[in-house]
Design a protein around this nucleic acid. Structure first.
Lengths: 151, 151
DNA sequence: GCCGTTCGAGAACGATCAGTCAAGAACGAT
DNA sequence: ATCGTTCTTGACTGATCGTTCTCGAACGGC
């Protein structure tokens, strides 16, 4: 009963993944979120409790969806450069995971739980996780690695 | 001529490295900086121009000092786990570099220049840069890797 | 056709943000 | 001693921060 929602919660969280993944937690304001998610202020707080609550929801969806998809690419692609290149160009954006790892995990235990979950997923898909992480990090910072060409 | 400075610019920048490296750029307020650097508001803006100016100064010092020191450890230590463990426990804190890579380099070209400089330094010291980066990233997120013992 | 409930819309809250300004204090030079 | 210069100090600005509140609209149940 009651008035039905005017927004899709899953879509809203997905949009939050994009914003937090591009601008970081501290760098994303609630105004940013409100104007990009199609969710109004009151509904946002009613649904997620706080900015941090929405961030955690976004991170969980990111791990379950985007990180899982990336893990599949990693498992299916031989060669780290090719796998990371494929993810960077056609795969899911892992910006939120990278940002969560350095920005929030050290100071927010619940974030650390989710990032650990993500790392475990990736480790299962590929034993040389560290090398993949480092390459993803450099790819985000400098753009796609120019030294890699070809499929 | 003129009144002498009441603070050491090098020390102030070093303190800024710590703050930015722990709390990120967007997560560190000018009030934070003022209360931890021993530099008052006016002097901060007179000396560095803006919060971003101070951030760039901090990042440059970080690359020239802390990243250079880490590169020496990497070059002098055989074994990635041992090298990263040594840096994490007794070496320089590379938090600012990691944060700059994911938070600022993608949106601030001058930051990207400095992070590229840092990566070049590390690459010269160790060919398997990506693996080292990934391990540093995980170490920051979850704390020192429990699987590594000895040395 | 109301009632209870949930949501939409946006004004409003105190706090904090980055950045500026004016007034005075501490120096070197004359 | 006085002047020009540079730095200190803290109040101040308008904007933006995360969060809360109010009020009306849209629903299911009776």
């Amino acid at each position: 009963m009651g008035r039905p929602r005017g927004f899709d919660e899953d879509e809203a969280v997905r949009a939050a993944v994009g914003l937090f993944g591009r601008q970081s937690f501290a760098g994303t304001s609630v105004d940013d979120l409100v104007s990009h998610l199609g969710v109004h202020r009151g509904s946002l707080y009613k649904t997620f409790g706080s900015k941090r609550g929405l961030y955690l929801a976004a991170l969980r969806q990111h791990v379950d969806r985007d990180v899982a998809a990336a893990a599949e690419v990693f498992a299916a692609t031989t060669g780290i450069d090719a796998a990371v290149h494929r993810i960077a160009t056609a795969g899911p954006d892992l910006g939120l995971l990278l940002l969560a790892l350095v920005e929030r995990a050290p100071v927010d235990p619940e974030v650390a739980v989710e990032t650990s979950r993500a790392l475990a997923r990736l480790r299962d898909a590929r034993a040389d996780l560290d090398q993949a992480l480092g390459l993803l990090l450099r790819t985000r910072a400098i753009g796609p690695a120019p030294e890699f060409v070809g499929e």
